[in-house]
Design a protein around this nucleic acid. Structure first.
Length: 439
RNA sequence: GGGGAGGUUGCAGAGCGGUCAAAUGCAACAGACUGUAAAUCUGUCGGCCCAGCGCCUUCGGAGGUUCGAAUCCUCCCCUCCCCA
């Protein structure tokens, strides 16, 4: 294994880099020295519980990419084997089992997303994505019990936090999930054998699983393996990270549009912005410190949030999409929306939540605002729409709608064909009155 | 197999024949204040309309008793606890 990394990116910076970014929650003894001495191969596992990863997975994804930039070789495990069992870590209830087809389908989507931050052509340390289903699915039960199970005492497994917590609960933990620990340890062993992988990273809830793998490698191969876990990403306001009104924030553009993705980051709490810049971007110390100063000096400018949003969106959706999201945001949240002409708005039409409706609907008496709100899903029912209007939470072309029975007509549209609907402070939706309906 | 407790509007959790679309808390949404931030305060929080002390659909499911049922009865389904 490992020749040394290139001179420009000294591997020995990796640990202090992670430390500075606040990514070291816990690490095995001696890891700092190992990383200072040699280029290692490391891995992180990703669960195929859905067809797309969400922003919560961004932290470990970025961690792999960072390590690669420091000359280490990253491996992402897509858990096509372990995903079939379900990790009890951090869970309070037994998980729903996924079918093989589901797991495989989900893997395809996840691989594509991991590929966005990893470099598979880097030399001498290309990234790899492997599927642990390749070695876990063919496992034979008796062989596994004899070769691997023999090295785990039940006492040891019962002492693990993830199991202990579940034991105290009424539901308990199934034998299936109880066994998860051994499978993950076996993954580590397999990667050690195949790729000389000596470091596993993960979220803080993975500590027990990771140390179990380290122990297994030591017992069976007499080698020293390491673990490092990163903190749970929190929000200062106490909300679960990665959630918005619309639900989880996904990395897949068809589930969460780049515009919404960008908006998610722009809305970051002041108190979290600096930490997120360290967690989720490749920006260096100097740049981040400068942005921290900006937060203190001119918080209303939201410069840190803008940079954060731009960087993360670019990483995941590419430069073009990031630019468009940024432009659309500047347009909608800018000073002078009222004066915009339809051309400018149409330019961002595809990047912002939007709907086309036949122009005929707005002819004559026009369309009821409540109906349009429901049609655009800004309100879930007419009743809710009426309530929103009554509460002063609805704007058309940036002017508050005063009457819940108001109607939209073409002569009030921007350039006679566009309505900019807004719910509350920041939910925008464009409506285009399409003169050529049907098709 | 025996005994017991229970399934209520996103969650938690009241209600136990009419005054129940159903207390309260949390979450959520909107308003005020702001900076697309936080905190705080206020309001809303099943659906429909001709907006009324109006109509419809909800309290695990199906029937029944009653002028009237989330509340009582019967059967069924599901969950948990205790004893075997």
């Amino acid at each position: 294994m490992g020749s040394l990394g290139r001179g420009t990116m000294m591997p020995n910076d990796a640990f202090s880099e992670l430390e500075w970014r606040g990514l070291v929650y816990e690490a095995t003894e001696g890891l700092r020295d190992v990383l200072a001495r040699e280029a290692v191969t490391l891995y992180i596992g990703f669960d195929p519980t859905a067809a797309s990863l969400h922003v919560g997975s961004l932290l470990p994804m970025m961690a792999l990419a960072r390590m690669q930039r420091f000359g280490h070789s990253p491996i992402a495990i897509a858990g096509g084997g372990t995903g079939m069992i379900g990790d009890p870590s951090g869970k309070t209830a037994e998980r729903q089992l996924l079918s093989v087809d589901q797991v495989d389908a989900n893997l395809a989507g996840i691989r594509a997303q991991l590929a966005k931050v990893l470099d598979f052509d880097a030399s001498p340390n290309p990234a790899r994505i492997v599927n642990n289903g390749d070695w876990l699915r063919p496992l034979r039960y008796l062989d596994f019990l004899r070769d691997i199970g023999k090295h785990f005492t039940v006492n040891y497994m019962l002492a693990k936090e993830s199991v202990k917590r579940r034991l105290d609960q009424e539901d308990g933990v199934s034998y299936t999930e109880f066994s998860y620990l051994m499978l993950q340890a076996y993954d580590f062993l397999t990667l050690f054998d195949r790729y000389g992988c000596t470091l596993q990273m993960g979220g803080s809830d993975q500590w027990g699983n990771i140390t179990a793998g380290c122990d297994l490698v030591r017992k069976l191969r007499g080698a020293r393996a390491h673990g490092l876990v990163m903190p749970l990403v929190t929000t200062s306001s106490g909300v679960k990270f990665g959630k918005t009104e619309a639900g989880a924030v996904w990395l897949d553009a068809s589930l969460t549009s780049p515009f919404r993705f960008y908006q998610f980051w722009v809305n970051t709490d002041d108190r979290d912005a600096a930490a997120y810049l360290k967690y989720f971007t490749f920006l260096g110390r100097g740049e981040i410190r400068a942005l921290e100063d900006e937060i203190a000096r001119a918080p209303e400018a939201r410069e840190a949030q803008r940079v954060l949003a731009r960087e993360v969106t670019r990483t995941i959706h590419g430069g073009d999409a990031a630019l468009r999201a940024e432009r659309a945001s500047a347009l909608l949240f800018g000073e002078r929306i009222a004066e915009l002409d339809a051309g400018e708005i149409v330019a961002v039409f595809d990047d912002v939540p939007s709907t086309s409706m036949p122009a005929a609907a707005f002819a004559g008496a026009g369309a009821a605002v409540a109906d349009v709100l429901v049609a655009t899903k800004l309100a879930s029912s007419k009743g809710e729409a009426a309530r929103l209007v009554r509460g002063g939470g609805v704007y058309v072309n940036n002017r508050r709608v005063a009457d819940e029975r108001a109607r939209l007509t073409l002569d009030s549209a921007v350039s006679g064909r566009l309505f900019v609907l807004r719910r509350g402070a920041r939910q925008y939706h464009l409506v285009l009155a399409d003169p050529a309906p049907g098709a």
